[in-house]
Design a protein around this nucleic acid. Structure first.
Length: 284
DNA sequence: CCGTACCGCGTTTTCCCGAC
DNA sequence: GTCGGGAAAACGCGGTACGG
């Protein structure tokens, strides 16, 4: 076997960079400076987000302050007021039990209206109901079938609405949220899952990503390109290497692989996983 | 000298989480 | 349930260092 030089030159025209060049020492205003964090530390506990904003630059927002306060583990002592004792008639609990059983859990704002009718705050009503052990019947999600789980591996999980659409097309009824929750529960990545990128493949086999790309370009590793909106400055569109093609490559080019450098868990998974014949998508 | 590893760039994509 | 800020991860590849 003789080694052939590989050229990375794609003959692309030079395009100017889109962003301003990096200047050492300069930072984007969206990143929080130590001074800004000190302001949050100082004013948040007593004055809340509003007090912090008064001392922070104009581009800071309330939610930004909440994020930083959360990171610092701070809580604000604003809001609230004197505690009010809720007075109720002695038979209130009985009335509540009866009213609660007639409550329509599917209707939004039902608890709000009941609180209004009984003349008590909404938060107090739900707290009382909890204490009395009153529950609201909720329709449980029907269990997931194997067919639905198989479909999970093929839908674009980064686009929940489109997922729900595909489920409907296949005759299933799952909301976008339900699908996202399921994806999390069964540990499915929401990232692109129709194959490996050159970099992912390289990491598994212990190659440099450039070496991997060279194999893709030379055709020794069968790979296609994924259409996207990546710019020429980023190197253009990405590679897609299907698990089966990568497995073929491992078997054919075994002598080139340095087993000290491979990701042993990922490699064994690649070699042993069961894939759907037609789509080559791992079936879980 | 050649082939590969390493570093870093500019950008998009994705995740996380709190507020509303 | 939805929105949005913040940040990490991901990506391909140019440039360069390094080892045999």
């Amino acid at each position: 076997m003789s080694l052939q030089p590989v050229s990375f030159s794609k003959g692309r025209a030079h395009l100017p960079r889109l962003s301003t060049p990096y200047i050492p020492g300069r930072r984007d205003p969206r990143f929080w400076t130590n001074d800004e964090i000190d302001i949050v530390r100082r004013y948040y506990p007593t004055g809340g987000a509003a007090a912090c904003l008064a001392h922070l630059p104009a581009h800071r927002t309330k939610s930004g302050v909440y994020v930083q306060a959360g990171k610092l583990g701070l809580t604000a002592k604003v809001g609230g007021g004197p505690k009010v004792r809720i007075e109720t008639p002695p038979d209130f609990d009985e009335t509540l039990k009866d009213a609660w059983s007639e409550l329509d859990g599917k209707q939004r704002g039902a608890v709000n209206r009941l609180a209004e009718r009984l003349g008590v705050p909404r938060w107090w009503l739900s707290q009382r109901a909890r204490k009395l052990g009153l529950t609201m019947p909720h329709k449980k999600q029907p269990p997931w079938t194997a067919a639905e789980d198989a479909l999970m591996a093929k839908v674009p999980l980064h686009n929940p609405d489109r997922c729900a659409e595909i489920f409907r097309e296949h005759g299933f009824r799952r909301s976008p949220t339900a699908i996202m929750v399921r994806a999390k529960r069964i540990g499915l990545s929401r990232r692109f899952n129709e194959g490996f990128s050159a970099r992912q493949a390289a990491r598994i086999l212990g190659f440099d990503d450039k070496t991997m790309t060279a194999y893709c370009i030379s055709g020794e590793l069968k790979a296609s390109k994924r259409n996207g909106n990546r710019l020429p400055q980023q190197g253009g569109s990405r590679w897609i290497i299907t698990p089966a093609d990568l497995r073929r490559f491992v078997i054919d080019q075994l002598e080139r692989i340095d087993f000290r450098k491979v990701d042993k868990f990922e490699l064994v998974h690649l070699l042993t996983m069961v894939t759907d014949r037609e789509t080559d998508i791992p079936s879980r």
